[in-house]
Design a protein around this nucleic acid. Structure first.
Lengths: 361, 361
DNA sequence: GCAAATTGCCCAAACGTTTGGGCCAAACGT
DNA sequence: ACGTTTGGCCCAAACGTTTGGGCAATTTGC
């Protein structure tokens, strides 16, 4: 570039930044580095960008050194908007969850964020409250932000909406819930349900009920399925009216349990497909004047940190929530590299406590 | 522009997008619209951008109509990276919280996200686990993403780090916790503590203890302060050893309560500065073979959804978490407009339940 | 009927990167 | 001594917007 022109441009830029007001330090750009070093901006870019194969071809090692030193002396941070604009890659991923105030999803998100950081990705996370209209709207919103890919923690098992997203060529993975044949990272919910079923069978419970969660979520479906199958294998058929759907929160578990306890003869054990619903079940049991553990067994799923602290500690199935989040990003990262990925199903662990087993811890 | 040149460019662009692979539909740009309509890109930009004052000067109403129609027929979405690059405004805000798996912060974040959407802002949220080093690192990270402003939900009361951030000219507001004179949206924690103190005094409790939370968080400090002052006003001095710091989770509340119960004569009531710590206190009380409510009163703070569902419903102070998040963004938005803003202190509400008052619901 | 104002649009530069392709000089091969 | 490689750097276009200025044609004012 014509050196005269260059210095004129520099003058203009300085004047401009003065007008902006004093306190907000203007971010340092490649051009500033290049100007101060008497180099071309492309040289600086190459040196600061590609480590092994490019940088030594781009400049002499002395120059490389000069550039590096100035860059971190001035605290150079590439402008991600410029980079994204140029490369058509934003290193952003959108994450949809039903609600972050559900500790399960929040913990999964912690795993997502942790792993995303390691992959150089940033995440937009938003709540959809499991409402399809909101899922659509929020998906549009994050796609408008030009994310590279998405993670859905709120998949409907019918996968209708996901089909549309896939048709648009957006890379995504599912966490927590599975749907269709899309790549997902889930807990082995079916196995977890089975384990709990076998546990209750072993304790002699024959008349049991299930607070089954929302009918559109694979988590509730699979946990219930495993539980029911465990009983079927033992020759016990759980009647239809012993299985009631519910919201996934405490209130929902409370209501569902109320319904279950309303009938004439009550079950001797209740399996709620997540811990919050189980806590709601505690409330309903209490309202009936019954005692959890002594009069009726209650079990949950997920082993959230509260489970062990409850006045009657809760028997539950530990699901690797944090790990699910981490693997979710790992899968997505590989997807973004163009690799083909397989779904993963993580192993649950049965935690036996006093809510089903009076002599347990 | 020379029409010949323009069409040649179009050809190049088409060829290029073919190479990308079939499925990923190339996003529609201003130029595509302009080319198809035989207009200049700047005209299209103006029409699609400024509503009342500009658009009618920018084009005839017929043209405006044509542009609008094609834009949403093709589903035009402005590329935010290009826009941010040009305008130096990203409409992004960074949110730091200790941990989203804490339902209090998660709920605050729901408010933040909701209100952010209404303001046309998007949020990056990240967990810092209250570790200063991580706070710094994550702050750098979101600033590198060129956010317009920040919301801290993890402020240390000493405000040292916040001072550095402020010195760099970054606009921010605090939620949940206050610090220094920086604009914040908090619950009136002091008042909440007072209300609880007066409640327990009214029930005749003279020998009380406090599970006070982390010493660096204004929430715990102010709640404890209000509580202690209520007792002081009644002529009761709470001895130093009755006040123990703790983590904010169930485990932390458990450990702190164990310590409190270890001594010779035990208090007749325990105030834990948040619900999770209170649940942990439940666990510790249970481990001592005591019954919450009957043998010892326990109160919490925040009124999380579980409080009412516990086997012994928890007396607590309702704090407007969702609203705090909303107001936080509102404040930040005004700050970004250059307005001057004042901190807000939201009103708490006492929820009396059986954990302190055996005959309550 | 002429100057002035308005309407309706176009031009071009800029935001900060990345990247394919140059170009000049020095080192190398024979 | 003379072509060829390589080292070290620069050039310029492009990504998709926004925005201060134009400029021609039409309308308005008098």
């Amino acid at each position: 570039m014509n050196p005269l022109l260059r210095s004129w441009k520099t003058v203009r830029r300085l004047r401009r930044s003065e007008q902006l007001g004093a306190d907000r330090t203007p971010p340092v750009t490649l051009r500033m580095l290049a100007d101060r070093l008497g180099l071309h901006v492309s040289t600086v870019s190459r040196v600061l960008h590609a480590k092994p194969d490019e940088s030594h071809r781009a400049a002499s090692s002395a120059t490389v050194e000069r550039i590096r030193r100035l860059a971190d002396e001035l605290g150079y941070r590439p402008n991600p908007h410029a980079t994204s604009l140029r490369t058509r890659r934003s290193n952003l991923v959108g994450v949809l969850v039903p609600r972050l105030s559900d500790i399960v999803l929040a913990t999964i998100y912690e795993g997502i964020e942790e792993s995303a950081g390691e992959h150089g990705l940033s995440t937009f996370v938003t709540n959809t409250r499991d409402v399809p209209g909101i899922q659509r709207a929020r998906t549009e919103m994050v796609l408008a932000r030009r994310v590279d890919g998405m993670i859905f923690g709120d998949a409907y098992v019918d996968a209708e909406f996901l089909g549309e997203v896939a048709a648009r060529g957006v890379p995504f993975v599912l966490v927590s819930r599975r749907a269709g044949d899309y790549p997902s990272v889930t807990c082995d919910d079916y196995l977890g349900g089975r384990m709990l079923g076998e546990h209750l069978l072993g304790l002699g419970h024959r008349d049991v009920a299930v607070v089954a969660g929302e009918p559109y979520a694979s988590t509730g479906i699979d946990r219930t399925g495993g539980f029911v199958d465990a009983y079927a294998d033992a020759g016990v058929e759980i009647p239809r009216h012993r299985i009631v759907h519910s919201r996934f929160d405490a209130r929902g578990g409370h209501e569902a349990t109320e319904a279950l306890l309303a009938g004439g003869e009550r079950p001797s054990a209740i399996f709620a497909v997540n811990d919050f619903a189980a806590i709601g079940a505690f409330g309903a049991v209490r309202d009936q004047g019954l005692r959890v553990g002594a009069d009726i067994a209650v079990a949950g799923f997920n082993d959230t940190p509260l489970a062990a602290e409850l006045p009657v500690p809760l028997t539950t199935v530990r699901s690797p929530m944090h790990e699910m989040g981490r693997r979710g990003i790992d899968l997505l990262a590989r997807l973004l590299q163009g690799e083909h990925v397989e779904s993963e199903r993580l192993r649950p662990e049965l935690m036996i406590r006093a809510s089903t087993h009076p002599t347990a811890s």
